[in-house]
Amino acid sequence: MDTFLNILVAGLLLGGIYSLVSIGLNLVFGVLRVVNFAHGAVVMVALYVTYFFYAVFGLDPYIAVVLVVPIMFVFGMGIYWFILRPLQDEPMMQTFATFGLLIVLQNTVLAITRGEPHSMNTELSRLVFSIGPLNVSAVRALSLVVATIIAGGLAAALRYTLTGKAIRGLIQDRPVGVLMGINVRQMYTLCVGMSAALAGVAAALLAPIYSLSPGLGDDFILPAFAVVVLGGLGSTMGAYFGGLLVGIIEALAGFYIDPTLKQAIWFLVFIAVLILRPSGLMGRLGAEEVGLRGNA
């Protein structure tokens, strides 16, 4: 039982990481209807920005986050204005463009760093809470807590604020939203900026866990896509709970069946959910067809 609890907690904490990375991806997916292949690379860039403040100014990643988030917000707005906006009438081309951006970002960081891995070793990264048989890493627990706050906060903001309602209006019916006076470009800029800013938050939280390398973002992007589709296209809370579900399945399958098979196993669950409920666990029925009427 102790072992089961330990692996369950490990899965939950892993799920927090998946949720953290997936929520920003889902925002762009839901609002712009663009499959952003570059999202993992944006997380990677944010990790290197965090490392820059750590290495040059000695800033702890959790302090650097107040600088990284606005930088990434501006970076995200730049992605929209210079890459996605010019292609707004070519949705398929937008997706290809994000793939191009992934390659550009990855190889630019590679050229600057020569691929040399870096790690951040902070006091908090070594902190582990032992509760009976359970060992809980402080940084992973913090990732779960922050993912929970972000998912809840974002869902509430989309539901109750005027800007959130405007975004939801665009998600549900863009032409009608435009007729109602919603500034589409402004909302899209905001969403892509927020998505990159959330990547900045994720980076600060993941920085003490992983070795930085230009390809690190690639490792997150496949699970993140699965989480977004599993949870429900365009649904913030869907991305959150989808992340937790994938994390728990992965940990249990890795421990009780075989670590090599764990990804295959949660992809089997992924396929099964899509067959039984194509809109995902928390997506609205039909969202998979017209794209993303999330219940945010």
Binding site: T3, N6, I7, A10, L14, I17, Y18, D218, D219, F220, P223, G247, E250, A251, G254, F255, D258, P259, T260, K262, Q263
Partner: peptide, 15 residues
């Protein structure tokens, strides 16, 4: 055994 690009290796360590 584990995948070199796995996001999490807690399962391997606990085994």
């Amino acid at each position: 055994s584990h995948a070199a690009r796995a996001i999490d290796l807690t399962d391997s360590v606990l085994r």
